[in-house]
Design a protein around this nucleic acid. Structure first.
Length: 608
RNA sequence: GGCCUCGUAGCUCAGUUGGAUAGAGCAGCAGCCUUCUAAGCUGCGGGUCACUGGUUCGAAUCCAGUCGAGGUCGCCA
C-alpha cells in the first residue's frame, strides 16, 4: 500500500534548475505563444499595448478541434484594429514555423486550433516516467503562505463539519506546497475567551463528581458532554482533593489549563485519525501574555488613525432590548470596504474576539507570511470583510487574506438523515464517522465537492465497492494498474518491466485514439495542479482524478469486448507493444498516486 | 432591513477564472456480458443555466435589479 504521506510538501530541489516547462506542455506552448505575440509587437504588427499573457492556450472542449486552442486573435482584435480571423492568420503564420506544431487551423469566430506532433505528449510521459515524484510540481515561488484551518474551540470533540474544514485546509496546504509554495499549516487555539472558563467550570463539576459527590443534572450554561468525565477523573489523579477548598479564582486557571490541554490532545487525536496535520498551534492566550500583543496592535492602528473612540448605530431589522448606546474603541474597517466600523473592546473592558484576531493576523504578517488563507465554517461568512480589512490595515496592504468558507455537512445513511441531537451533548462526532468508514472515504468525499456547496455525506454509500462510489472508483483504478503489472510479469516469465525499460518504450505503438486521449489527459496534470492551486480549490484535483480514472476504466473495458483483444494492455505475442502500454499504465499510476497523496487518500495496490 | 454564500437535467453535482453544439454520476429506457481483477459494459432520451436588463466579437461565468434557499447582523468564538 502506498501511504498518503509521501513527501508532497518538500519542494523538489531539481525544480530550481529544471523548471516546469518540459513537463507542463500547456505552459510550454503558452510561452511559445507569448513569444510569437511579442515578436509581432516588435515588428509593429501588433500595437505595443497588447499584453501577451492575456491570451490563453487550453485544451479544447471538443477533441475534434485538435490538441490545443488559442483565443489570442479574439482577445486582441480590437486593440489591433483587425478582424479576429485576419489576426489569427498572422499568428498562425508564425506558429507554423514551430516544428512541433503539425497543423493550425482557424475556426469559428477566430479560434486557432493547433495539432501537435505526438512526440510532444510522449515526451511529457517520458519526463513523468523518469521522475514520477517530480511530475506536476511547480517551481519554488516567492512569498510564504499560511493556511489556517480547523481552529475548533478546545471545548469538546470535533463534529463532522469541523472535519470538512480540516480536510479541505489540509489538502489545500498540500496542493499549494506541491505547486511550489512555501506553506505553513496552522491551528489557532481559542484558549483565551469566556468559553474556556465555561469549560473549566464544567470540568470542575466532573472533578467533584469523580471525587464521589452527586452533582445532579448538568446546569444550563455548562458543557454537558460525557467526554469531560475522564478529564475530571484525571484531575483527581493529579490534584487529589487539593482543589475542592480553593476559591474559584485559584482553581479556575489550573483547571482551565488542564482542560484545554486535554481537549487539544483529544482534537489532535481526532485529526490524526483523519491524517490532518498542522505544524503550528498558535495560542490566543499567548497574544496576551507575557506581552499584550493585542494592545500593541490596537495602539499601532490608533496611531495610523484606523482606531478611534466612537458610537455605533444599533443593528437594523431586529429589536434588541439589550442594546445600549455607548462610546467604544472602533476599528475603521469601512476604510477598507466593510459596512460598519467594528468594536474592539466589550462593555466589561475586555477585548472582543475580533481584537484578538487582528493581533493574531498581524502576527502572521510579522512572521513573514504575505498570503493568508483562513478556512472557516460558512456561519462565519459575515466576518470576512472585517478580517480582510484588518489584514490590509496591519500589513499596509502587503498581505492578502483569502477566506475559504466551508458549507455544512449533512450526514446521511442510505439516503436518510442521521439524527444529531446537540442538546444532550451527544452528537455524532468526527471520530465516530472516521472509525466507521475510514479516513480515505471521509477525505475524498469531502474534497469531491466545492467547498462552498453544501455536502451530503452518506455513511452507507461511501464504503460501497461499486462504480457509484467515487472513492472506490478512483482507488480501484490505481489498484488495477498494479494488477496489470502483476499479470504482465506472469505473462512474460517474471519480467520486471523496470522504469528504465519503460522509458525506452516505443510510444508510436500507442496509436489508438483512446490511448492518445489518455496520454494527453495525463499530460494535463501539471496544468490542473497549477489551476487548482491558483484558485485555492483542491476539489478540482478530486474531479480530475475521477475523470482520469474514468478514461482509464473505459479503455480497459474496451479490451474486454470480443474481437478487441488487441486492445488489451498485455499482448503476449508482442513485447514491444506491451512495454509501450505498460509505460502508459505506469504513467497513469504515478499521476493517480501523486494526486491521491496530495488529497491525503491512500493509493492501494489491490482491493480484494 | 443590511451584508455573505448560493440557484445548472427528475435527483446529487461539475463546468478549465469570458470561449465554439453547457457536461458527468444516479434514476429512466434499450441492448450486451461470465472477465488482462470480480464488485458489470455500451448506447439513448432528458436543459428557458431562477428571472429581467446591461457590458462585448462571445456570458452559466462579469455588473445592476427582481424572485427563491441558507447563513449572519456590538458586549459568542
Amino acid at each position: 500500500m502506498r501511504g498518503p504521506h509521501e513527501p508532497v510538501e518538500q519542494v523538489c530541489a531539481r525544480c530550481k534548475s529544471k523548471g516546469t516547462t518540459i513537463m507542463n506542455v500547456f505552459a510550454a506552448f503558452q510561452t511559445r505563444l507569448e513569444a510569437v505575440l511579442l515578436l509581432l509587437k516588435e515588428q509593429g504588427r501588433l500595437p505595443a499595448s497588447v499584453e501577451p499573457s492575456r491570451a490563453v492556450i487550453e485544451p479544447p472542449r471538443d477533441p475534434s478541434h485538435g490538441d490545443m486552442a488559442i483565443n489570442a486573435a479574439m482577445v486582441f482584435a480590437k486593440e489591433a484594429g483587425m478582424k479576429p480571423r485576419d489576426l489569427a492568420a498572422l499568428i498562425v503564420a508564425e506558429l507554423e514555423k514551430d516544428s512541433s506544431i503539425v497543423a493550425c487551423e482557424i475556426a469559428g469566430p477566430g479560434f486557432i486550433n493547433i495539432r501537435l506532433a505526438p512526440s510532444v505528449f510522449d515526451d511529457a510521459l517520458r519526463a513523468l516516467i523518469a521522475d514520477p515524484q517530480h511530475f506536476g510540481r511547480g517551481a519554488p515561488r516567492k512569498g510564504k503562505v499560511n493556511v489556517e484551518y480547523v481552529s475548533a474551540n478546545p471545548t469538546g470533540p470535533m463534529h463532522v463539519g469541523h472535519g470538512r474544514g480540516a480536510v479541505f485546509g489540509d489538502a489545500l496546504a498540500s496542493l499549494l506546497a506541491f505547486a511550489g509554495h512555501d506553506v505553513t499549516r496552522e491551528y489557532y487555539i481559542n484558549d483565551a475567551g469566556a468559553q474556556v472558563d465555561v469549560l473549566a467550570r464544567s470540568v470542575f463539576l466532573r472533578y467533584r463528581e469523580a471525587l464521589g459527590e452527586d452533582i445532579g443534572a448538568i446546569p444550563d450554561g455548562f458543557y454537558p458532554g460525557d467526554y469531560l468525565k475522564p478529564v475530571g477523573v484525571a484531575l483527581v489523579k493529579h490534584y487529589a482533593t487539593q482543589l475542592v477548598d480553593m476559591p474559584e479564582s485559584e482553581w479556575l486557571p489550573r483547571v482551565r489549563r488542564y482542560a484545554i490541554d486535554a481537549m487539544m490532545t483529544m482534537i489532535r487525536e481526532d485529526l490524526a485519525k483523519l491524517r490532518v496535520e498542522h505544524s503550528v498551534f498558535f495560542s490566543e492566550a499567548s497574544l496576551r501574555e507575557p506581552l499584550d500583543a493585542v494592545k500593541t496592535t490596537i495602539s499601532a492602528l490608533r496611531a495610523k488613525g484606523l482606531v478611534y473612540d466612537g458610537r455605533l448605530p444599533p443593528p437594523k431589522g431586529q429589536v434588541d432590548a439589550e442594546w445600549e448606546d455607548r462610546e467604544q474603541a472602533l476599528f475603521r474597517s469601512t476604510e477598507f470596504g466593510d459596512d460598519v466600523d467594528r468594536p474592539l473592546v466589550k462593555s466589561d473592558g475586555s477585548y472582543t474576539y475580533f481584537a484578538s484576531d487582528i493581533a493574531y493576523h498581524a502576527s502572521k504578517y510579522q512572521r513573514g507570511f504575505t498570503t493568508l488563507i483562513d478556512v472557516w465554517g460558512a456561519d462565519h461568512g459575515g466576518y470576512v470583510k472585517r478580517m480582510a480589512a484588518a489584514v490590509n490595515a496591519v500589513s499596509d496592504g502587503k498581505a492578502v487574506l483569502d477566506v475559504k468558507l466551508c458549507q455544512l455537512v449533512k450526514l446521511m445513511r442510505n439516503g436518510e438523515p442521521v439524527k444529531m441531537s446537540k442538546r444532550s451533548g451527544d452528537f455524532v462526532t468526527l471520530a465516530e464517522v472516521v472509525d466507521e468508514v475510514g479516513a480515505d472515504a471521509v477525505r475524498f468525499m469531502m474534497l469531491f465537492r466545492k467547498n462552498d456547496a453544501p455536502l451530503e455525506f452518506d455513511l452507507a454509500k461511501v464504503i460501497e465497492q461499486s462504480k457509484d462510489n467515487a472513492v472506490f472508483y478512483v482507488q480501484y483504478a490505481h489498484a488495477r494498474c498494479f494488477s496489470i503489472f502483476r499479470q504482465a510479469a506472469q505473462a512474460f516469465d517474471g519480467r520486471r518491466f523496470t522504469p528504465s525499460e519503460l522509458l525506452a518504450a516505443d510510444f508510436d505503438k500507442l496509436s489508438d485514439p483512446d490511448e492518445r486521449r489518455l496520454i494527453q489527459f495525463i499530460a494535463e496534470y501539471p496544468r490542473v495542479i497549477d489551476a487548482a492551486a491558483q484558485a485555492h480549490e483542491p476539489h478540482r484535483l478530486a474531479f480530475y482524478l475521477y475523470d482520469l480514472a474514468s478514461a482509464f476504466h473505459a479503455l480497459w473495458n474496451r479490451g474486454k469486448d470480443k474481437g478487441q483483444a488487441p486492445l488489451r494492455f498485455i499482448n503476449q505475442d508482442d513485447a514491444t507493444l506491451t512495454v509501450a502500454r505498460l509505460a502508459l499504465v505506469y504513467s497513469l499510476m504515478s499521476v493517480l498516486a501523486s494526486a491521491l497523496a496530495i488529497l491525503g487518500v491512500s493509493a492501494p495496490d489491490e482491493m480484494r
